[in-house]
Amino acid sequence: MTLDTDALGAWVGEFARAVREHRDELTELDSAIGDADHGTNMDRGMTAAVAALDATPPADGAALLKTVAMTMISKVGGTSGPLYGTFFLRMSGALGDGSPAAFAASFRAGVEGVVARGKAEPGDKTLLDALLPAADALTEAVGAGQELDAALRAAADAAARGRDAVTPSVARKGRASYLGERSAGHVDPGAASAVLLVEAAATTLARS
């Protein structure tokens, strides 16, 4: 089972489709505790990323992820541009041989890039609260010898649990942190889009 360029392209395409499907919902979440642009920003970025891949087919998986990264940091406009852009950029640099173990390691490298870029910690109510548990679950499942489809399912479920776990919390990063206590009880928009990213991996890469 190898994660080749086509497989990664399918993941990116499915993420773009899911972002489009949930665009208004993500923006609505962001209007409650932020600046009401997360869905439109992510949709603009991922639509441009898919268009860039169509215009210039990438030579390999690393080039594919780098194109997504550069498009996100350029086109998204909001904080999610540098954050998701850094995720894909670091993943691109650590992609390895396409084995499930290499994919898990590169996913973790991407998440560590988000940590470095955003300087958020677990529980701050950001996309990391979905991505960190996903990386942990993926690493653990692959390390235990599980098939990639089971490992990615575990990662997607962990991401969703992580998103839900911080919903009651007070946001400590980004625009939502200006709201203080009023951010409690709202789903974090970044965590919500991060769940879509991991869910997209579970529905596409597992078929590789």
Binding site: D37, M70, K75, G77
Partner: peptide, 12 residues
């Protein structure tokens, strides 16, 4: 943003 909206672009 390049479409005239509010936002920032690291490449720019």
């Amino acid at each position: 943003t390049d479409d005239g909206g509010l936002g920032t672009d690291a490449v720019a």
